[in-house]
């Protein structure tokens, strides 16, 4: 039956993943290069990592970025979850088409348009540009991603669970907090993580909406990258990649382990061993 996993398929996967991972791997390897020339291997060294610790500008930028990402991801998660509930639960309400349009359009809108339009808004209302304008801009575009993630969980949500809670005397708001939220929590958490990384990652929108004193890490990296490849940039990139990899891989291992436990329990129950 599963003879379909042919040589063609294996080749496609090997080539595909090579393409995806080789550039990142090279970047990581060359961050340990002793030579300042990034394309010539001059022996193993961790020199550039120590240099990073002395680079106050980069550390400042990293700190700004983390704060922006944390605040914007958290607010975006709340707003995006509300929007997902509105879209999946409330059927047709006035202005629904416009609403879903405003949710889905930012997913594909080129960053330069979003960035410019938000900047002009902040200028028009005379809002001091800086940390908070970046945060507001990030909330706006990341909440749409959160909404889509949560929405795809909510469409498969068995609504009779909520009805059962109401039926047993639990008012709607409490039902949301004790039944709905715990069950959709994994989707909400991955929505938050997505918003967090999108915010960490964003260069264009932040560049438009920033003001004096608020420089994010991508902006700092970008201004250095334009001057050429340096091992320090390789080093900071490696650190970022390592953090993301550890978080994503451990998150997926935890969910995988839970899934295995669950399947085991279900098999045992089905086999009647537990009865």
């Amino acid at each position: 039956m599963r003879k379909g996993f042919s040589a063609f398929n294996v080749t496609a996967l090997v080539l595909g993943f090579t393409f995806l991972y080789v550039p990142i791997l090279l970047l990581v390897i060359y961050s340990f290069n002793a030579s300042r020339l990034v394309t010539v291997w001059g022996g193993f060294s961790t020199e550039w990592y120590w240099k990073l610790l002395e680079n106050d500008q980069l550390l400042d930028a990293a700190w700004v970025t983390l704060r922006v990402a944390f605040i914007s991801a958290s607010v975006a998660t709340v707003l995006g979850t509300l929007a997902a509930i509105a879209l999946t639960r409330y059927g047709r309400f006035t202005g629904r088409t416009l609403f879903s349009g405003m949710i889905y359009a930012p997913l594909v809108m080129p960053d330069v348009i979003t960035g410019l339009s938000l900047l002009l808004l902040f200028v028009a209302v005379n809002f001091d540009r800086g940390f908070w304008t970046i945060t507001l801009a990030h909330i706006t575009f990341t909440m749409c991603f959160v909404c889509v993630v949560v929405q795809s969980r909510l469409v498969t949500f068995d609504r009779s669970l909520e009805e059962a809670a109401l039926d047993l005397g639990c008012p709607p708001l409490r039902t949301f907090f004790v039944i709905t939220l715990p069950i959709i929590l994994p989707a909400v958490v991955s929505g938050w993580m997505l918003a967090f990384t999108l915010s960490l990652d964003d260069l264009v929108i932040a560049s438009f909406t920033t003001g004096p004193g608020a420089t994010t890490l991508p902006m700092r990296i970008y201004s250095q990258v334009r001057l050429g490849v340096t091992p320090e940039i390789n080093a900071i990139c490696t650190i970022l990649i390592a953090i993301v990899t550890v978080v994503v891989v451990s998150a997926s291992i935890v969910t995988k382990r839970q899934e295995i436990e669950r399947q085991k329990a279900e098999r045992l129950a089905a086999a009647g061993v537990m009865e």
Binding site: I24, L26, P218, I221, V229, C237, L240
Partner: peptide, 30 residues
């Protein structure tokens, strides 16, 4: 699921970094 994670993983790492990594590969002495 593992393959899916391998596809998504680069997406979680910075877009800027991924573009940057190609400079070192494609440059004349790259």
């Amino acid at each position: 699921p593992t393959l899916l994670m391998l596809v998504i993983l680069p997406f979680w790492t910075s877009f800027l970094i991924r573009v940057y990594s190609w400079i070192g590969i494609l440059s004349p002495e790259g």
